[in-house]
Simulated scan of single mutants.
Amino acid sequence: MAKSLNLEENCFLNQFGEKGFLQARFNYYSRCPSADLVLGLKPHADGSGYTIILQDDAEGLQVLKDDQWVTVPSIPHALLVLMGDQMEIMTNEVFKSPVRRVLANSERERISVAVFYTPEANKEIGPEDGLIDEERPKLFKKVKDYADIHWDYYQIRVESNPYCQSLKSY
C-alpha cells in the first residue's frame, strides 16, 4: 500500500510498531423471526488498522457507499480485508474506513470471524508526511491508543430483545 502511494515501503509498518496487536472476535447471529425490526450489528467503523473477516455463506454484511447500504457478497472461504480508522488516519484519508452493519436474517443463522490488527500500545500514529501537501492538508492530529478511545466511544452493547437475540460474541 505504501509503495502504491509512492511512500517509503515500511512507513505504515513503522507506525504499527514491532508489537502490533491482533484480536479475534467470533460472532454468532441467531435466526431472527423479526429481522425487519432489528439489526444484527449496528452501523460502525472499526478502530483498528485493518480488519480481516471470514464469513459463512449467509449474506448480511453491508457497507455504506454514497449514502446507500450495499450488501457485501459472501464468498465461501474468502477473506474480506477492510481498512480501519487507524489506516484512514495514517493515509490522511486516502484509504477510508468503511461504515458497515450486519442485517438480521429471518431464515438462518450467520457466523463470522473478525480479526483486528492495531498498532502496539502507546504507539503514536498520524498522517504520513508524504501524503500532506497544499492540495491535501493534514486532516488528523497524531494520536496514541486510538483503538481504546474508539472502543470506549462505540462500544457494542448486546441488549436483550423480545423478538430475538441478535448478536453473541465469544
Score class of each variant (00 low, 15 high):
A2W: 03
S4K: 11
E8F: 06
E9D: 15
N10H: 12
N10Q: 14
C11R: 05
G17W: 03
G17T: 07
K19I: 00
G20W: 03
Q23I: 01
Q23H: 11
F26S: 05
Y28C: 04
C32E: 02
V38G: 05
A45S: 15
S48V: 04
G49E: 01
Q55V: 09
D56Q: 12
D57S: 14
A58E: 11
E59C: 10
L61H: 08
V63M: 12
V63F: 12
D66P: 07
Q68S: 14
T71H: 07
S74Q: 13
S74I: 04
D85N: 14
M87A: 05
M87L: 15
E88T: 03
E88A: 10
I89K: 01
V94K: 10
V94Y: 05
F95R: 02
K96T: 13
S97Q: 04
V99K: 08
V99T: 14
R100V: 04
R100H: 15
V102G: 04
L103C: 11
A104V: 03
R108I: 11
R108G: 10
R108P: 01
R110V: 02
I111A: 07
I111M: 15
S112P: 08
S112E: 05
V113F: 11
A114W: 00
V115R: 07
T118H: 03
N122F: 08
K123G: 00
G126K: 07
G126C: 10
E128P: 00
D129G: 02
D129Y: 03
I132H: 04
E134F: 03
R136I: 00
R136T: 03
R136E: 02
K142W: 03
V143A: 02
Y146E: 00
A147V: 10
D148Q: 14
H150G: 03
H150F: 10
Y154E: 06
V158R: 09
E159K: 13
E159S: 09
S160Q: 13
S160W: 10
N161E: 04
C164H: 04
Q165R: 13
K168M: 09
Y170E: 12
